[in-house]
């Protein structure tokens, strides 16, 4: 291959990787509204009870750089709202849970309603405002204390 053609291939590779990165970034933290199964604390081996109004169920692993920050963000959201709980489940040794809930990346967050039914799914680092909006819809409240 002559150098000019090789350079074109190189540039195409960089362009493709950039496109991939933009798509990946746009999809991060997107909230997908779903109507899924009912999950109980026992299902995810949690001794912490779920929230009365809603639960932010986060899945993490030990090798996830974004999980600790997400955990802090969700814990902050949960503690600012009555009846909302946050749970961080480590999947490192629980491949069965990852398979059952079809978790493809960490962090993945499921928003459960007061009955434990999955109402939304977020892959990647969530956005505080999106979570707040969804919790407002779910609990029928408009919590003005949270910046939107």
């Amino acid at each position: 291959m002559n150098p000019l053609t090789a350079l074109t291939v190189i540039l195409a590779l960089v362009a493709a990787a950039t496109a991939l990165g933009l798509v990946w970034r746009a999809r991060q933290g997107r909230i997908a509204t779903v109507s899924g199964v009912v999950i109980t604390p026992t299902d995810v081996a949690s001794d912490v009870p779920f929230g009365r109004n809603a639960t932010l169920l986060q899945f993490s692993t030990e090798l996830c750089a974004r999980c600790p920050g997400t955990s802090r963000l969700l814990a902050g959201v949960a503690s600012s709202r009555p009846g909302v709980a946050h749970l961080d489940v480590d999947l490192t040794h629980r491949a069965d849970l990852a398979n059952r809930y079809r978790v493809m990346q960490t962090p993945t967050t499921l928003i459960l309603d007061g009955d434990g039914r999955v109402r939304a799914r977020i892959g990647g680092v969530p956005h505080r405002s999106g979570i707040a909006r969804h919790l407002d819809d779910l609990t029928g409240s408009n919590n003005v204390s949270l910046a939107r």
Binding site: T18, T61, C64, A65, R66
Partner: peptide
């Protein structure tokens, strides 16, 4: 490497979990 450098993509967030699911790691 490029995604990591330019977009702060985290390989461990995705691939590690898939390896755990495939039963390769984390048993």
């Amino acid at each position: 490497a490029f995604l990591n450098a330019a977009f702060d993509y985290c390989l461990g967030c995705q691939l590690y979990l898939l390896l755990v699911r495939a039963g390769v790691l984390g048993r």
